[in-house]
Every structure is written in C-alpha cells, then in structure tokens.
Write a protein that binds this DNA or RNA. Structure first.
Length: 563
RNA sequence: CGGGGCGUAGCGCAGCCUGGUUAGCGCGCCUGCCUUGGGAGCAGGAGGUCGGUGGUUCAAAUCCACUCGCCCCGACCA
C-alpha cells in the first residue's frame, strides 16, 4: 500500500479525553475513531490488526476442532426469560422493541442462543461432543466504558461453547480451550497468566481468566511465587500476622483529625493496633464493620455478604454514635458488629470513643465488643501471606483477555436441552462457555509494547510487516530505488511512505504506527550505495546495498516471527 | 449510581471571573514558492449556530436555570 493513497489519519496530539496509553496511541496512529462513549469505528489500520488477531484465533479454534458459525446479535426476549437473565442482566443489556412491541436484546453473550440451537438439533449422544464458536459484536451497556477500546459498549468477542455428554467430556473441552487460549496469546506475544476467577452472572462451577499484567488493567490479581494466582475477587491470602498487647480500657484525648494516619502518629502506635470502625446501613439498619487499621475493606466482598449495603451518611453516624466518623467505635453501643478476620484475637486496640477528639485504647474485642459475626471483607494487598505456602503475595493490576467457564447444566436444564444417552436415558447437555476480547488483545499489545515514540507491534498482529520510507521522492534516484524495493517486496505486507513530506514527519509517523521492520531510502545513504533496514524495537539500523534489501528484510521478518 | 473534571475550527488551547464592534492562537488543511535524514520556512487562503434550550440585559462565548454529551476515580465484566 502506498501511504499517499491510504487513509491513515495520524494525529500529532492525542485528544485530551484519552488517558490510557493504548487509547492515545490508537487514536494518534489513526487506528480507531470514537463515535460515542464506548463505541468505536475501526479505521483501516486498526481493522488490519483486528483481522490478524481474529485469524490467529480462528486458526487455534479450528485446531481444537472448533467449528465457526454465526448467530444473530438481535435476539428475542423469550430466550432470556427462560433462564432468568432478562431480569438478571439489568441495565447492562441493550433492549429494543420491534414494530409489534415485542422485546429483543442486543446480545451481550450467547449462551441462550447456543442452547436454543442445541436443544433443537442435538438428539443423541452420537451428536456430541461439539465446539461451536463465532466472532461477533457484543453489546453491553457498561456502567462505565473506559480506556478506549479496553472496556467498550460494543466490542468484538470470540465466544465458543462446548457441548458434552458428561463432566469428563466438559473437562476435556475445557482443557482444549485452555490450550488454544494459551497458544493464541503466545502467538500475539502477550505474556498471559491464568488465574482462578469468579463466574459471576455466567454461573457454573469453575472458571479461569487469562490475564496480562498492566497498570491500565481494571482487575487486580493476587500472585505468589509458589505459583498461586487468583483474581482478588476470589483470591485468598492471610493478613500479615501481628502481635496484640493487652491493656486496660482507657479514654484518651486526641485533638487531631480522625484519620488512621493522624491518630497513629499522634499516639505513636502502629496502624495495625488501630481498629478501624466503619458504619454501614444494611436493610435499613445501622451496622458496624471493623477491620485492622492497616487494611481497607473490599466493597465487593462486603456487598456479596450484605446485599444492598451502603455506607452511612455523616449525619446518620453523628446521630447513632454522637461523634463524627473519625472518632467512632462499637464499644458501648448497641449496634450489631461484624469484625474482619484480620482482628482475630485483637486486644489492646485503639478506636474512637464516640466523642469528637477522644479515642479509646486497650480495647479487647472479646471483652469490650460483642462481635455478631466474623467476616472476610479485607482488601487483599501486597505483603499478605499466601495461604498455600505462607510467603508474601503481590497484588498487581491486570487486563482480562479471556475467560473460560464450566457451565455444567445450568443452561441446558433451564432450557431443556437434552440428548438421549447410550443407556437410553434423557440427559442434559453439559456445557462450557469461553470468551476472548478481540480489541483487548490489540490494546493490550500496545500497553505492553510501546515506547515514547509510539507503538511497537508484535509482528504477528502488526498492520503491516514492513514500512518503506522514501525520504525525498522528488529525487529521481531515491524514488526509483524505493519503487524498485517496493516491487521486490511485493509478497510481504508493506506500507510504502511515498508522500511528499519532510523526512521528520515520515520517521515520526513510522514510529508512531509501530511497523516492525523499517526500510529507509534516502539521498545520504544512496550516495554511499546503501539503504537502511531496522527493527522498530531496536535502535541501530543496518546498512545494506539496495540489491540485498529483500534478503535482509526477509531474515528480520523471520526473526521477529520467531521461526 | 456515588465522587471529580471538561464541552470555543479536524487536534491542542486562550478568551469567561470583571458582559460591549469582524471570537483569537499553535498544529493540521488548501494555493504558490522554497526545502528534504527526526514533526522546516515565506506569502496568501478556507474553516466556528462558542454542546443545546430557556432566562436576565440595550447587549451574552462571558451572568442565571435547566438539559445533553464526554473523560477520570470507585462498585460490574471480554
């Protein structure tokens, strides 16, 4: 492709709304264009990347026996009502009505549709197993789209579904997907870690996520050097053990701001000898949740234990305890107390005295607080202890690229998708569901591979393999040499920058869009009979005679592919 | 949904507080000249319902009210 004829609208400055590295570079490089919040157009360059990603996905899905099909995105409400997800999905589901006022959903996922297909078509155990997949736009009205393409409201997903006779069969299908996913991310040069995850609205028994560590990620992982890793939403780790020293209950004057920092500094005590007392409202009534001072509460855990819980308002706290938030504790109050496990055995603790500028020291949970229930609501953090090996774990941000679920018979039972087994009995199909975010692979590759000048694509998903710069096309020798090289490299994916632009512009653009191999034809080199070839990720270029360019380029290309 | 911020030309911004003629600047875009190894220079030019609606006023980008959109931080998910 000649750049002079291509539609590659690069930007010198990124739109101010783009904050995430991948979002900025995708916008600046002319890969995507945003249409509305979380909705994007994929421009020619971006679409080339996505097509390559999809090709890799298809090859690996086909390799495990997957068969590609394509389901509608517009789906009748009745199907979703059968499984209860018409209600369960809530506001995240885009809903439309037809002219007869019948309800439809723009599918956020396709379990119901695949199960409908299976129950109509699968009769006998002889029809199983099956792996069916598709790559398609999904629609989810996300609470908050973010990071450009990282969390979008319409996005491409490869979703596959396995249909098996029994749980052993499901285990095999699951394993096959695990392997396919591993290969897909390897081929995209993305270092994915596999973690245990929660199944959420999908349901089912077991699920794993394929994650890539990145500060732009929205998930956080607990990682231990012993090999244990999990999403913090299901991750287990023990609090750092500390010693509690018993003491007498005393009221002390604390004329400072009621924050953990200020109070511990004023009293000269470590944060873990503080009992953080927080008030929430659950089912219309106040409750206390207490946790060790060096920890925070994981609101996700809290909500799963106390559905519908909300933090108490400042006025409510004042009314119930007589003090502002920084000076409260359950001691002496008749309000139910839920204590986090980090406080197990807690004594000699400091917490509010329910009077502004006063705290209590020497609190013993056993003696002074009526704990209604011990709960695990602690936000796991770096330094916590691995439950398997006892070593310190690390908490890191990550991007979720893929998620696999063992659904079991949740959908097949709800929708009566059954088959007749060898023994003549009717049994529900045992199902699995598996997803990959296509644009996320593109964005994550940028998050992982970029420098201050732009993207450095892994060659397997680069929009072009080679970029050829003709530094001064008005010089006949430069132009002719570049044209000749362009023709010679006709069988690789090459972008030929033949524009009438300053050299600087071409260098900057080439770096920005991140093509892995760059060939430069310029006057300066030609005077010495050479052109330059360079990998995007390397600093130094090699000088080669024009006649040898093809050979050198092909070699670099192979190195990059890792053949 | 809670918290924070932003809407002025394709992109980045100034002007608004303290209302007052044709609403500015840089980049980009068009024409010509010139230039050609890391986003050149000169000259000329095109491009705006100042997010929208309503109000205050002789007069609104500027003040007030409502509204829509977008981004960021938190609770959900590929």
């Amino acid at each position: 492709m000649r750049w002079s004829e291509a539609f590659i609208p690069t930007l010198r400055e990124a739109p101010k709304d783009a904050v995430t590295v991948s979002h900025r570079l995708l916008l600046r490089g002319g890969f995507i264009k945003s249409l509305a919040s979380g909705i994007h157009t994929y421009l020619p360059l971006g679409w080339r990347v996505l097509k390559k990603v999809m090709r890799i996905i298809r090859e690996e899905m086909d390799r495990i026996g997957g068969q590609e099909l394509h389901m509608p995105a517009l789906t009748p409400a009745e199907l979703w009502e059968e499984t209860g997800r018409w209600e369960e999905y809530g506001d995240e589901m885009f809903r439309v009505k037809d002219r007869k006022k019948r309800d439809y959903a723009l599918a956020p996922t396709h379990e119901e549709i695949i199960t409908e297909l299976a129950r109509k078509e699968i009769r006998s155990y002889r029809d199983l197993p099956q792996i069916w997949y598709q790559i398609q736009m999904k629609f989810r009205d996300e609470l908050r789209p973010r990071g450009g393409v990282l969390r979008a409201r319409s996005f491409l997903m490869k979703d596959s579904y396995s249909l098996d006779r029994d749980w052993d069969g499901l285990a095999r299908s699951y394993e096959l997907h695990y392997e396919a996913y591993t290969r897909i991310f390897e081929r995209c040069k993305l270092p994915a870690v596999v973690v245990e995850a929660s199944a959420g609205i999908m349901g089912g028994s077991e699920s794993h996520e394929f994650m890539v560590l990145s500060e732009s990620g929205e998930d956080s992982l607990v990682i231990c050097s012993c090999g244990y890793s999990a999403n913090t939403e299901v991750g287990e780790a023990d609090p750092v053990p500390v010693e509690f020293k018993d003491g007498e209950l005393k009221k002390v004057h604390t004329p400072v701001e009621g924050t953990v920092e200020k109070i511990t500094e004023f009293l000269g005590i470590p944060a873990y000898h503080l009992m953080k007392s927080l008030m929430y409202v659950h089912e219309g009534k106040p409750i206390f949740v207490v946790i060790r001072g060096d920890y925070d509460i994981d609101e996700r855990k809290l909500v799963s234990i106390f559905p519908g819980i909300r933090p108490a308002h400042p006025e409510e706290i004042k009314e119930w305890t007589g003090a502002p938030a920084g000076y409260i504790s359950p001691v002496g109050l008749n309000i139910p107390v839920y204590a986090d496990l980090s406080l197990k055995g807690g004594k000699g603790l400091t917490s509010g005295a329910n009077e502004e500028f006063y705290h209590l020291t020497g609190i013993s949970l056993e003696r002074d607080v009526k704990v209604k229930e011990w709960v695990d609501v602690r936000l796991v953090k770096t330094g916590d202890r691995c439950r398997r090996c006892g070593k310190e774990v690390e908490v890191r941000r990550a991007i979720e690229l893929g998620h696999i679920f063992k659904l079991g018979t949740k959908y097949s039972e709800a929708m009566r998708a059954t088959f007749l087994d060898r023994d003549g009995k009717e049994k529900p199909i045992v199902m699995g569901s598996y997803g990959i975010g296509v644009e996320r692979i593109m964005a994550t590759a940028i998050e992982v591979y970029h420098d201050e000048n732009g993207i450095i694509w892994p060659i397997s998903i680069a929009p072009y393999e080679v970029i050829l710069l003709s530094l001064n096309p008005s010089n006949p020798e430069v132009r002719e040499t570049a044209e000749r090289i362009y023709r010679e490299l006709g069988n690789v994916e090459i972008l030929y920058d033949d524009r009438d632009e300053q050299p600087g512009v071409k260098f900057k653009d080439a770096d920005l869009i991140g093509i892995p191999v760059r060939v430069v034809v310029g006057e300066r080199g030609l005077k010495r009979g050479v052109v330059e070839v360079k990998k995007r990720k390397e600093k130094e270029s090699v000088e080669v005679e024009p006649g040898k360019v093809k050979e050198v380029v092909m070699k670099m290309r192979e190195e990059l592919y890792g053949y």
